[in-house]
């Protein structure tokens, strides 16, 4: 009989979002493989899996690295449904890349129907100080409005790379511990159909005017997430 270490390993889906060329893949590859990607290699869709230890607990992460190129926008819905935590990445060298995050965040909240969905905001390319175009204060202010932690990171120098992923894991763990029912989040991407009378109003009469199939979720307040981590 094993007692030690048999605590079931949590599994979380992380989705990395942000506009093209901000360094989503570089951050992810640094985190998972400890490698710096030099080549010009735009992503269409990559998935990674890695196990990390967060505050002494083992967590299995499935990380989906997405296309920043806007032409692939039709894939976003699917990603967002599957994700449980989101890294919103921009480049501190481009104001426009920051501006695009708010649309992404709105979309996540709409699709997850959850304003407290774990999000970490990352200003990447922090090593390119001479090209900085986004004021740290500005980015931080936005992150506060969103109730999300803000990190400035550099995939190239491997600064704050682990921290952003770990922070996201903590948020997801905290939700999980608090009994937040995210089962339906987890299954969001899969089909629910099939099998006779189940679901979607089939076979059972519903009260007039009620909207039966929407499950109302319990909301919890999260505390202590207002921080700005700088290098």
């Amino acid at each position: 009989m094993r007692i030690y270490g048999f605590q079931p390993c949590r599994e979380f889906h992380i989705v990395v979002l942000g506009t093209g060329g901000v360094g989503k893949s570089c951050l992810t590859a640094q985190f998972v493989h400890n490698e710096w990607i030099e080549s010009y290699d735009p992503t269409i869709e990559d998935s990674y899996r890695t196990q990390v230890s967060v505050d002494g607990r083992q967590v299995m992460l499935e990380i989906l690295d997405t296309a920043g190129t806007e032409q692939f926008v039709a894939m976003r819905d699917l990603y967002m449904k599957a994700g449980q935590g989101f890294l919103l990445v921009f480049s501190i060298t481009s104001q426009a890349s920051l501006d695009e995050l708010s649309t992404l965040r709105e979309e996540i909240i709409r699709i997850k129907d959850d304003e407290k969905i774990p999000i970490v905001m990352v200003g990447n390319k922090a090593d390119l100080l001479d090209q900085r175009a986004v004021d740290r204060k500005e980015a931080f202010a936005i992150s506060q409005q969103w109730n999300a932690p803000y990190y400035e990171a550099s995939a190239r120098t491997r600064t704050n790379v682990d921290q952003v992923f770990i922070d996201l894991c903590r948020q997801m763990l905290r939700r999980d511990d608090s009994g937040y029912n995210d089962d339906d989040d987890y299954n969001g991407g899969t089909r629910n159909g099939g099998g006779g009378g189940g679901g979607y109003g089939c076979g059972q009469k519903q009260e007039d005017g009620s909207h039966g199939s929407m499950m109302k979720k319990r909301r919890r307040k999260r505390k202590g997430d207002h921080k700005c981590i700088i290098m």
Binding site: R191, G194, G212, S213
Partner: peptide
């Protein structure tokens, strides 16, 4: 077989790209 449907449900299924409505 009788199936009660609300427009809301259909719209929601459509929104989720769920194309199949199962009538056995």
């Amino acid at each position: 077989l009788e199936l009660d449907l609300k427009l809301d449900d259909l719209l929601e299924m459509q929104k989720d790209n769920q194309d199949d409505l199962d009538l056995e």
